[in-house]
Simulated scan of single mutants.
Amino acid sequence: MSMFRLFDIAGSAMTAQTIRLNAVASNLANAESATSSSGQPYRAKQVVFRAMPMATNAQHAQGVEVSAVTEDPSPPRMVHNPRHPLADANGFVTMPNVNVVEEMTNMISASRSYQTNAEMMNTAKTLLLRTLALGQS
């Protein structure tokens, strides 16, 4: 595998993790919103990854890409707050199905993955520059 292929692989992972971070940010921003623009409670977004072939030759390098951004099918949270304007007859408000602890864990995981791929790109760049320097001596 070419050293330059590492940049493609790490770049694809960084792009995928950026989309994941955006989904987490959206989920956290709407965690306490009783309604969305559609009038229904916000549904948490989940990012689905899949392997993506990076080359057509015999060396099967694979990157990653986002295959879908789906809505979490889990039921919404029911919060008892009879004073809320959207409360039902029993005093319950339908809230988003966002679990803040899970979202914070996803954010840390995506950030670490992004950071690891950025460091891999920097290491590959350093190795390529040292290889060029050997050729100059």
Rank of each mutant, 00 (worst) to 15 (best):
A87Q: 00
L86A: 11
N81A: 10
E102R: 09
T105C: 03
T105I: 15
N90S: 11
D72P: 11
A61W: 06
G91M: 02
G63Q: 06
G63S: 07
S74G: 09
F92R: 01
A51N: 14
D72G: 10
F49H: 04
M52N: 09
I108L: 13
A68M: 10
L86S: 06
M78S: 13
M54T: 09
P75L: 02
D72S: 13
V101I: 13
A61P: 08
N106V: 03
E71V: 06
V98T: 05
D88I: 00
V66G: 00
E71K: 14
V69Q: 06
P85K: 04
M104E: 06
P76S: 13
G91D: 04
A87H: 01
Q62I: 13
Q62V: 15
A61K: 02
R83Y: 09
P75Q: 08
M52C: 00
T56P: 12
M95T: 02
N106T: 05
F49N: 05
H80F: 11
P53D: 09
A51L: 14
S109V: 11
N81W: 02
A89G: 01
A51R: 15
P76H: 14
F92H: 04
M54P: 02
N90L: 08
A58G: 14
L86H: 07
P76N: 13
N57L: 07
A68W: 08
S67Y: 13
S109G: 13
R50K: 15
N106Y: 07
M54K: 05
V98N: 01
S74P: 04
P75V: 11
L86P: 03
A51C: 08
V66T: 05
V101K: 02
A58C: 06
N106R: 05
A89H: 07
M104C: 07
A61R: 08
E71N: 10
A51P: 03
A87R: 00
M95K: 01
E103C: 09
